[in-house]
Design a protein around this nucleic acid. Sequence first.
RNA 1: GGAGGGGUGGUCGAGUGGUUAAAGGCACCGGACUGUAAAUCCGGCGGGGAAACCCUACGUUGGUUCGAAUCCAACCCCCUCCA
Length: 416
Amino acid sequence: MTAFSSDFMRIIHERGFVDACTHAEELDALLKAETVSAYIGYDCTAPSLHVGSLVSIMLLRWFQKTGHRPVVLMGGGTTRVGDPTGRDDARKMLTDDEIAANMAGIKGVFARYLTFGDGAGDAVMVNNADWLDGLAYIPFLRDYGRHFSINRMLTFDSVRMRLERETHMSFLEFNYMILQAYDFLELARRDGIRLQMGGADQWGNILNGVELGRRCDGVSLYGLTVPLITTASGAKMGKSAQGAVWLNEDQLPAYDFWQFWRNTEDADVGRFLRLFTELPLDEIARLEALGGAEINEAKKVLAHEASTLARGEAAALAAAETARAVFEQGGVGEDLPSVTVPADELAAGVSAPALFTRVGLTASNGEAKRLIKGGGARINDVTVEDIGRMVTDGDLKGGEIKLSAGRKSHALVRVG
RNA sequence: GGAGGGGUGGUCGAGUGGUUAAAGGCACCGGACUGUAAAUCCGGCGGGGAAACCCUACGUUGGUUCGAAUCCAACCCCCUCCA
């Protein structure tokens, strides 16, 4: 690997952020010579981003840390089209209201990772609806459509996959890559942006933008992608017991976020520390060298660092405290999910399955019953033997009742 | 527009009149083993019910039948070839 002279290129290569890069030496020289603006686009398909996007967010953060100017592009316009990349069916069409709501949710995430403002190195956020919504069809086709070769477009993975699998692809979706390419050109023109970054699956889309810039304006644009992160056992990263690992607090409590990192597979610890924390590499090397059960210490560091970035240090410490109380002392912690039951209702008794469902440990009474039959349900750490078990105020311990589903999921019932 | 093929549970994919809440795989959830890891093995995996059992579900809507995911009709959507 080439020795890079710019801090950004050196650091992200050392830390494993780079999947592919267009003319890396040239880009390195540019980053060394001047303050560069780079962007990553995020479509508004969900009310929050999840850990799958975190690699790219960390990348923007390093970009800013090394003296450059990150631009977050909200895909207010492209979300209305729908990126076909990596899917063999069309996305559900989102209404404009849904897109606006999703965008509002996603925007909040970035404030924790980037410093926004008007200064030279400050991050900015833009919305491609600002220029895409107003495009006029015929002029657009004449000015830009002529630069796109259908023959070439058909060879891109996102399209080819649909063709090979003989699944439907609408013209609407087919246009996504053109619009994304145009985004890059537009941003280069209006804001001097030279670099687009993104996930490995965006490589084709990014290249289109690079080429469009050269063809239309003769400018040198650059592209860089980060690898798709899978766990050592091959699964796509980002599932927790509760489903997707969202970055937004309102989508996933800090305790669950912390737990997600704490449960990292041994083989992933070093890689994740490099990608998702900013600890020095020698410290990471020391942590990942820990053997056997010792590696758990490294996982706690990972959980702390990642949680501090996403949710703040106080939330990270509180989550760690709860985890310690629950797992190392077999007790309870403040951060466990909880539900409050009226005193008179509890006095009368609530069936165990209903209570497990009520606190969210199970999705239905049936599931709760199956959990009990399988021996996975516990009340105050005592296995529930009978699906007819009633829970009453007699079960209160220190004003709380601890419910557990399996070894890892716990919740509290309080009286109110 | 014509001819043919197809739309099944979170997903992939069997099933072509009753014994099918629907084989099998994956994902997921429990249990055992561990270190809140991985791998492995075991169990579970639509909703309600203590249970008997009831309800909902096989693109949509009707129909045939004692009985339909399975047969018929119309419609919607997808794929292939033809125009």
